Every structure is written in C-alpha cells, then in structure tokens.
Computed example of a mutant assay.
Amino acid sequence: MTKKGGQKMLLRNLTTWSKCLAFLYTLTLIVCFDSGVMASSPVVLKYASTTPSVGFIADWEKWLANEIEKRTNGRVKMQIFFGGSLLKIPEGLDGVKKGVADIALIPPLWFPGELPLFSFTQVTGLAPEPDVVRNPHLMSKAVWKLWDEVPEIRKELERWNQTAFSVRTMPPYQLWSRVPIRKLSDLNKLKVRELGIRGRILFGTYGAIPTSVTPAEMYGALQKGVIDAAVASFDWGELYRLKEVARNLIVVDFNPGAPFYTINMETLNRLSPKDREILMKLGRDFTSVYADALSKYIDELMTKFKNEGVNIIRFPAEERERWKRECEPKLIDAWLKELKGVNMEEAKKVIEAFLSATGGKDVIPWRK
C-alpha cells in the first residue's frame, strides 16, 4: 500500500469513528434528557394549599412534597404556598388552568358551573351510607372509580387544562354548633353554614337559613353569631379551632366528598416521561397512605374532643334516615334542573355510578 493510500484509509477510519462517536453522544443526550439527568435545575411545582401551615393536613402535604423530591432524585420538587397565600379556594380552578399554581385541591361543590358533573360527588349530603362516609378508603376508591370509568368527568377537568393527580379523602362533615341539635325541628331559624343547593334543600326545608362562609371565616362567624352552626369537616374543630366557639359537635356523617388534587396539563407534559410516571403513581399512593393516616387521626380527635369537654351529640339514626328520604331525591332533581349545557344521560350516568359505589342508590328518583 502506498503512503497516499494509507492516508486515505486512515481518514476514512477517522471519519467512521467520528460518526460513531457523534451517534453515541446523541444517544446519550436522548437517554439523559428522558431520565432527567441533564436538567440543570429541578422542576419546581407550585402547590396552592388553602390550609394553615401546621396541623394534620399540612404535615401530610409536606410529606407529599418530600416524597416527590425523593422519588425523582431531586429532579422535581413541590413548593407549598400555605393558607391561601397563592390562591384562595374559589380561585383554584382558574389559577391552575392559567399556571398561577401547578397543583391545587379542587372541591367540586365550589365549582358547580365549571365542573357540573364532578360536583355531584359533593351534592348529596346524606345518600352515601354512614359506613362509607366514615371510611376514607371507601370514599376515595369511589371517586377514583368514577374518574377511571366515566370519561365525561375527565373531560370536564381537561377543558380547564388540568387532570387529576391525587384524591384527598375528607373526614365526615358534621355540624359544629353553638346550640344542641337533636332533631330536625331544632334546625328551624338557625343560620347554618352550607353551600349551594345542599344548603337550600337540606337546611332550608326545615326552616334553617343557609349561609355561605369560607373555612377561614367560620371561627369569627360562629364567635359573633353571624352563623349558629357550620357544616364542616370533622377535623376543622381542631384545624380552625371551631371547638372553641361551637361547643356542640353534632355527628350526622354528611358526605364530605373526596376532592381531586389537580395538576396543570402543560406542566405535567413538560416533565420527562419517567418523571410523569413517577408523579402520577405517587398521586395514587398518596391517596392510600393519607386514608390510612386519616382513619387513625379521626379516632384520636374524637377522644381529644371528649376529653376537652366538647358536647358530642350523635344525631338519631331514624332522624338521619328521614332527612335522607325527604331531601336527597329533591337534591338530585334540583341538581339536574340546574345543569346547563350537559347531556342528561351523562349526568344520570354519573349519579348511578357514584351512588352505586357509595351505597346511596335507594334515593335515585327514577328508581322509585
């Protein structure tokens, strides 16, 4: 081989090796990008919490933030803005849509016009059986079942540029009251904090005056007599100190619903496929571990309230059953009449699915 021929072969070999190295480098970049290794700084998710920065819920939201960082090896973090400092409850849906927050808890009863189908999960007050309402696992399972099997629910949230990330089961809603309530007639003329058609029908039917008050306003409203009683989450006696101004806890076991934590879809899609999968699995895991912790917390709180002298009144089962029988069919009819731009068959499908999963299908009007 001539000297010239050897040089040409060497050049060809070098060119081949250069192409191989370039290919391997490109492949490495793709793999690293997909796994998040190349990220120069972590993705920070803004979570708009509406709860105070201390307490049971705050502790578990901090757990969630730590777990996100841990499972993604620091590639994704969650910054929590407590106490409505980023978004108030009524601002949550639109705020996540516009990216003001990446994640928020969306109680559907606050958004009956925007999320009409999903709002039904918090419309019925007494239809889910008490055993289901008191069991965080059963309530969260019913809501996830609705999400997985009724595509119309998913489409509602997607129209607001968000999707379900997790479910946070709520403790049973009870009545925190300034006065004892032992029967339906005791509701007459009381000003009761309850929202929407639930307030009008569940309480207006018996002469009570439904009043809209945010969680943060309840303490002052009860203290000043603006309201006489509040339908509120069981743990709000501790979280918002309602036990100090409403010394009667009326155990009715209202349906609390199980709101979704939602996440902005654009934010979610910006994550690598691997981190999206990690995050969405964590959302389901959080539902379960939170439900376990909540069950224990409810038992601990009941003991604590008793020891602190709260007057715990268990609303008679026969009165609750009468309440359900007289009001729940009216609630369903009223909800259907107020729906706008919604296919009635889709709405009935949601009703059937949710109440079948929670033991309340005996109040469905068209089944009578």
Rank of each mutant, 00 (worst) to 15 (best):
Q122R: 00
D333V: 14
D253G: 02
A142N: 00
T50D: 12
Q223E: 05
K348L: 08
T50G: 13
R168I: 15
L339T: 05
Q122M: 01
E277N: 13
A216Y: 01
V100T: 15
I351K: 07
I197K: 10
I103N: 07
K70W: 13
L301S: 11
A208M: 10
A221W: 00
I103C: 08
E321P: 06
R284I: 09
K46D: 15
A230P: 00
I80K: 07
Q223R: 08
Q7L: 14
G359T: 03
M218Y: 00
D333I: 14
D94N: 15
L294N: 00
T303E: 14
Y261S: 01
T16D: 06
P42F: 12
N343T: 07
L27V: 14
L24Y: 15
Y219S: 00
I351T: 11
M38F: 08
L21D: 13
I68H: 04
W323T: 07
V251D: 04
A291N: 03
R320Y: 06
D253L: 01
I57N: 05
L268A: 02
Q122F: 04
E308Y: 02
K145E: 08
P116D: 13
F56G: 12
D186E: 01
M9H: 05
A353W: 05
V179H: 09
S233M: 00
S53C: 11
L105P: 00
L115M: 03
L355R: 07
C327E: 10
L45D: 09
L64Y: 13
S288G: 09
A353L: 05
K155S: 15
N269G: 09
E328G: 04
E308K: 02
N188M: 06
G283W: 06
A39T: 02
